[in-house]
Design a binder for these strands. Structure first.
Lengths: 326, 326
DNA sequence: ATGAAAGCGCTAACAT
DNA sequence: ATGTTAGCGCTTTCAT
């Protein structure tokens, strides 16, 4: 079932068939209809690799995530999937396993097979990302690099809200539980927290870095207790849930003795115990927006919308409360 | 950077370069080394679509899931990703949104772009799956169709364990909270449950079908209370967690008044409240095995291993307990 | 063991 | 508006 079969069947040249199918505007109406009818009858489906070879367009976009099992990405992946589907694109999913080296390698191998890349939480240094931009349309998520289009969830603003929340509850010693060291979002959140604390004449402390996983959260909990702080803000919910878990095991009351605030509002944040106070993140929207930016970049339209910032807000649940009297 | 550049650089013909790169065994050792060295220097990366066009192999496998945001698939996707990567394959992720029609359509469009398909929890009728097999290597997960390779997690056996567990705790009226009606696994679990109950001279009842989501679980909880049962086994953890949630809202004590057992042991099952008694499922392994079966099928080796069954076991947590006295 | 040449299915000049 | 022709980068006969 190729374009040639349709050509033979309808008596048109293959090129006309090609046009009728991929740029219907450029052929006569009756021609188009005859060809499209034949295509339908013969159950014709275009051969993507062949099309890619001659046109350079693969109708495929790669989505790189640092860890597929991190629930944070699922909304993102789904948002991207939806938007891609609507535009007739396929999604190649790539797990970089939190490794900059692997990320680089995979990026170079997919380069030829995709029309663009969405870099979600890239672990690459900024210059590397800029380098890729030269070869391929790129949109980053939760990551900024000069000249690279991005959609970032405004967690720094959320972190400020979280700090205000904790301070209003009487907390004075709040620690930041840091995530992976090469995460851009991690630095952004830490900076926001320092600023917010400073505004109240308080110093923020920091422990970590920790991997973005529940297991790391357990280790973090112990380190946290050693600091004597009455509250913490964790890089993400995975870590926060790990902390909750470990604190529970050690019989530490949350929020009675210590308050825990997470980030991202992932699946589970609302039903862990106690339910986690966290920063809601419009993840699915981020995925959709990233894709639409990537695709309109392909079409070279709208030079606006280079860097989109999506709002967050603090979702207060039961893991945060009044600071204990000391 | 094409094969021709390397040919020009080394003085060999393009065909020799091709061989040296893709079937190193078929060229002289020194030739091979010279060519490989040049490829490395020039930073050559093969063009996948071009290779696909001439050889028919795309080095890509499609993974179809019914809903990307279902945590059940996290592990599966990761397992598949790992195994594919190791074999030099890319992963195309496709969300079928629980719709047989969409599944069919997407399948026909990816057909030409992939070397095989993993159908995780397909919503297609058996004959449709068999039809696809004629065009493309297929491995199903948690789904059986005559003549189609599959890896299924032995939840039916797990369901039996769950029934024994509940009966030993004094439960006599246990209801099955059914999942999506076109889910094969759903039927398999229900059948297993009936059998297990019958063994003790008990009749199983069933409510549903419900969608495989937490929201559905809330509706299910209400229906469940109307039955007067003292325990339930839910199609999956998503539903079970939804039930737990709703029961909590309504002030029904779990497991004091009613016991809840889930299925799959997804992310969150261990930290919801109360922690969920559920069937552990080796999901990541399922993903790996499915891929390895798919790829060895490509190579037409080992006619064995057509249908792999992975074991489950009951993981008892706090959502199940003694039946209440009546 | 290596080279020459054809062609995979499609698109994109170019020609008509 | 449609047809002709030449590739895209690679693999694969078929020769040598």
């Amino acid at each position: 079932m190729t374009i040639n079969d349709i050509a033979a069947r309808t008596g048109f040249a293959a090129s006309t068939v090609s046009r009728a199918l991929s740029r219907p505007g450029r052929v006569n109406r009756v021609t188009r209809e005859r060809i499209q009818a034949a295509a339908r009858e013969l159950n014709y489906v275009p051969n993507v690799p062949a099309r890619a070879l001659s046109s350079g367009r693969t109708a495929t976009v790669a989505v790189l995530v640092s860890d597929v099992t991190n629930p944070f990405y699922f909304g993102l992946i789904r948002g991207a999937q939806h938007e891609l589907r609507a535009a007739g694109y396929a999604q190649m999913l790539v797990d970089t396993e939190d490794s900059p080296e692997l990320e680089t390698r995979l990026l170079s191998t997919v380069r030829q097979s995709v029309d663009g890349v969405i870099l979600a939480a890239s672990r690459l240094p900024g210059r590397a990302i800029i380098g890729i931009t030269a070869e391929l349309p790129v949109v980053t998520v939760n990551r900024n690099a000069p000249g690279v289009r991005s959609v970032v969830i405004d967690s720094p603003d959320g972190v400020m809200q979280a700090v205000e929340h904790l301070i209003s509850l009487g907390h004075r010693q709040v620690v930041y539980v840091a995530g992976p060291s090469c995460s851009w979002a991690n630095e952004a959140r830490w900076r926001a927290m320092r600023t917010a604390m400073a505004k109240h004449g308080l110093a923020a402390t920091r422990i970590g870095p920790f991997g973005a996983s529940r297991r790391s959260g357990s280790a973090a909990a112990d380190a946290l207790l050693n600091t004597g702080a009455t509250a913490c803000i964790a890089f993400n919910d995975l870590i926060a849930i790990g902390i909750l878990r470990r604190l529970g095991e050690r019989g530490v009351d949350v929020p009675g003795e210590i308050s825990v605030v997470g980030c991202d509002d992932i699946f589970g944040a609302d039903f862990c115990s106690p339910p986690l106070t966290t920063l809601a993140a419009p993840v699915e929207q981020a995925g959709r927006v990233a894709v639409s930016m990537l695709l309109e970049q392909n079409l070279a339209v709208r030079a606006s919308r280079r860097n989109v910032i999506l709002p967050t807000h603090l979702t207060v649940r039961q893991s945060s409360g009044r600071a204990p009297r000391r």
